[in-house]
Amino acid sequence: MSNDPRDLDGKRLQRAMHLLGRDPALRARLVDLLRQAESSIAYDGAVRDDVVGPIVDALHDDKDVYHQQLADGTRVQYLYRTKIARDLLLSASERPTHVWEPQTTKLLLELAPRLQGDVIVGGAYFGDQAVLVAKAIAPAGLKVHCFEPNPDQAGMLQTNLALNQLGNVVVNHEGLWSRSGEHMRLDGFDSFANAVAASAGEGFETVAMDDYAQRLGLRVGLIQLDIEGAELSALQGAVGILDKDRPWVVFELHRTYVDWSQGLRATPLCQLFLSRGYEVFAVRDINSHREMPGKPVELVPLDTVYLEGPPHGFNMLAVPAKGLVDTPAFSVVDGVSPKLLPHKDVRLHHPVGGF
């Protein structure tokens, strides 16, 4: 037990901030003040993560719920539990264009009109991407098949589908894996939780995408995965879909779960696509909420991705045939980081032409 009085003071301050946050009106005023202060704080690092964010976090607990309307009229309700919620709450725009990761959202919405089959989303969370994709593909008569084993977030996803009157989304409480019928549980908190083996009767069951698609007679046009290290296993359960339907695939790759010390090309995840004739790119994006109007989706070729830095992750795009990203919506850039970081080196971590 620490005898440092600063530890006690820190806990008292944490409790005091949380108490202030129990008054929603006062909390909103404090958050607004912090949002305004963010741009004027002189600091060499990440102001959001190091200064403003921890104060906003201290005002909340994980039962607090917010509602946001986006620029296109989409309504989202969400629990204040992770950086996704915090950064949306701190949006500089009253009606933002997206919930999380602006360039990934832009990418998914760019692909939506091209799709010839349904969408599978693994790690759908509260629908931060799935709801917007579902709206975009509804006129074509296509569906989004969401997989979210976290019961709280799956419930919030259902709420958001109802808020937006979306009838083209199927919510599954299973987790995606290489085999159907395995028993898994989530280890960790909320969006950071990863799937680990569990005993029968606890956690959730798994389903292989190939089995799911065959059972429903689906043609799949797009797969999106953000499932904290289970991406490889999930895709091993979808090789039939990859070979038959040739969907676009957007997936997260994180150094916590993937050894890229020999380069991205050597990783089993990328090899799974390359062996099937796919092109694979890293998607340049900011792991936050930030408006980036007029910016194309920047893609980094597999062998030129700048990977240095602390353990981090980013999204990848697997393209089913060459030439499909040769449009003005995309820009291929070499030798840069997929991590867009406003406080880091301009050449490596800023989009071409700046933020």
Results as ranks from 00 to 15, higher is better:
128 D>H: 08
197 A>M: 05
16 A>H: 06
198 A>L: 03
144 V>E: 04
264 L>T: 02
90 L>V: 09
67 H>A: 10
49 D>G: 09
311 P>A: 12
334 D>T: 10
355 F>N: 06
272 L>M: 08
249 V>M: 04
1 M>F: 11
153 Q>C: 14
6 R>M: 15
96 P>I: 07
138 A>M: 04
43 Y>M: 09
66 Y>W: 08
280 V>Q: 01
199 S>R: 12
38 E>F: 02
145 H>M: 01
293 P>A: 11
262 Q>V: 05
53 G>E: 05
294 G>D: 11
171 V>I: 14
292 M>W: 03
155 G>S: 12
18 H>F: 12
22 R>H: 11
133 V>I: 12
312 H>T: 08
78 Y>W: 13
245 D>F: 02
125 Y>N: 15
279 E>I: 00
83 K>P: 00
350 H>E: 07
4 D>V: 10
123 G>T: 06
235 L>G: 04
219 R>M: 01
133 V>Q: 00
286 I>Y: 00
318 A>R: 02
214 Q>N: 09
9 D>Y: 11
281 F>S: 04
94 E>H: 09
221 G>K: 00
29 R>F: 05
64 D>L: 08
198 A>M: 06
207 V>N: 03
12 R>N: 10
220 V>F: 01
305 V>A: 08
300 V>Y: 00
103 Q>D: 10
267 T>R: 09
40 S>M: 08
284 R>M: 11
312 H>C: 04
156 M>V: 15
283 V>R: 05
207 V>C: 07
